[in-house]
Design a protein around this nucleic acid. Sequence first.
DNA 1: TTGAAAGCGGTACCAA
DNA 2: TTGGTACCGCTTTCAA
Lengths: 350, 350
Amino acid sequence: MSTIHDVAKAAGVSVSTVSRALRGLDRVSPQTRDRVAKAALDLRYVASPTASSLASGRTRVVAVVVPFLTRWFFATLISGIEKALRRQGHHVLLVDLEGESYDSRLRLSQDMLWKRVDGVIVLNTPLDEQEQALIDSLGLPVITIGNRIRDWPCVRIDDRAAMGVAVRHVLDLGHTRIAYVGAVEQGTSMLQTPRERAETFLTTLAERGLRCPPTWVVGSDWTAAGAARDVAALLRARSRPTAVVAASDEMAFGVMAAARRAGLSVPGDLSVVGIDDHVLAEVLDLTTVRQDVPHQGQRAAELLLGRLLDGSVTPPPGDEVVPVQLVVRGSTAAPVRAARRGGTSRAASA
Amino acid sequence: MSTIHDVAKAAGVSVSTVSRALRGLDRVSPQTRDRVAKAALDLRYVASPTASSLASGRTRVVAVVVPFLTRWFFATLISGIEKALRRQGHHVLLVDLEGESYDSRLRLSQDMLWKRVDGVIVLNTPLDEQEQALIDSLGLPVITIGNRIRDWPCVRIDDRAAMGVAVRHVLDLGHTRIAYVGAVEQGTSMLQTPRERAETFLTTLAERGLRCPPTWVVGSDWTAAGAARDVAALLRARSRPTAVVAASDEMAFGVMAAARRAGLSVPGDLSVVGIDDHVLAEVLDLTTVRQDVPHQGQRAAELLLGRLLDGSVTPPPGDEVVPVQLVVRGSTAAPVRAARRGGTSRAASA
DNA sequence: TTGAAAGCGGTACCAA
DNA sequence: TTGGTACCGCTTTCAA
């Protein structure tokens, strides 16, 4: 492949001129610019990103830090980020923190970032003090998504508002016996989303003068399979809820599956509502609170690029909160009278 | 941050020695090595990857080319790749080819790869001649996953065998009225997987002396929602199949949803089988043919690393074919007698 | 076993 | 508007 020197020679100018001309800087005459452009094209010249990076100190690469990426939510975010970055000639370096076990994730280390990226986007991951200090010491700008970390700009939905919408939806349908899936033991996770959603579930019930027995607030690993396991007992109990609010659509899928296995029909015997509008929510006919995931990725990328491309761009004053919207589908309905009896009305299908 | 010169000064040696010592090359005395290591540690020195790349010509970055990454299959592959690469100090640069519309994907271009990565892993994407020539001219080693491209090593399952297993499963249950979802119009896609699975569906039926009416082989965009749309008419017809074979689990989910909407029970009125063992397959109780997706990503990464780390490693002789396995769950059962009547037994839930 | 020095391929400052 | 030329920070001969 050809270098900048080849282009300079072919165009009959110096390498400095080639560099300026190709990057669109001013102080290059139109004729010169054309000549250089033509020479570059002829030689199929593309500047070595590694050389430019070394010389300029900018890599045009952004690290996207994810707790794991096999989940629809993260993959979709990344897709949105990638597209927005690419539009500005930037690239995504994936940093997957998923460790061997569920809780032991990898730690962000210097060699993942140092001189490798110009900025960082952190997806729904709480970073510890050391990791935050590392990023600071490297002088990297950061945007977070979903989970706030100190004063770094954050793109997110209002988790409390979203949960409020979900809960009020089933309340408005007339439900009073409502369970919750997605609670996380206090201190187990530093994530705001599980905590805020769970809290809001309880406070929203309280606003209507309702209370929920502790056993009806069940923890979960936030997977569909986990949620199905976790609510199974609840649904087979003599006294069972008429509605389940899940903190995410994936868990809601698990709840619907568990209901079916317990011989309960949805929404006849049990209403189920989630949050996200997962790609499968429509086909599985799940009522949910939609959030625009690709958009959040895009916005995070744009905010970061704003700082990267124009250092003078002031960091946005507060978080960027993206609106949510209730999407009513077939998994919720008004409760049937006398729903207090056990759920044994119909045989399970399997 | 400190540079190699700082370390050299601190250790009282030359930069060349630091370079050798830190990279574990021989011809460095143990004492010197220790001294350098200590100095590097003290200074929190991490070599600038951009500088090493420029000097060495190696970036320790691998491009992972995906048609889109919001699908479980791709996200899971990437996760497997990332972990395997990281173990060897390599990184993933994401190249998402998803374009604005479904068919108009981005083309691989020189500036995505040139001097940016040491190798390429292509996930289930057919590259055109130009793109192949580009990679050749850049001298990059390539591993493909799922879809074979010329003689580049490919990690994949045997699509024909997998489909054979799925079809024979429903045949063995006694089904004779079997439909298929996931056909792709000839020439529309250069992908081998859709073609081979569809072909094998038909030939496997033929082996048992069965034939399938053309209208029972339905095309699809390979999404759950698409499949649900595409089979809806089929399931409401007077004369309907007792089983549907879907070319992927996501489509199978769509078929199950469509069945439910048509008032058909699964597997009572309709058996459904897919391929993949999607993360949601278990909870949705779908019978499927499992493939180990993370493993395929891992193997592809390992094959590539073999060539990257030791140029003398001979490229593997043929494709690396990963085994599949039938996983029988609750979505398949023997057909009920007189299943020929229309599906109107039960009201849809929504 | 160690050190000196010439690149790697650009960028950016300064002079012309 | 252009060209000359020090770097950017590390790798890699080649000598010592």
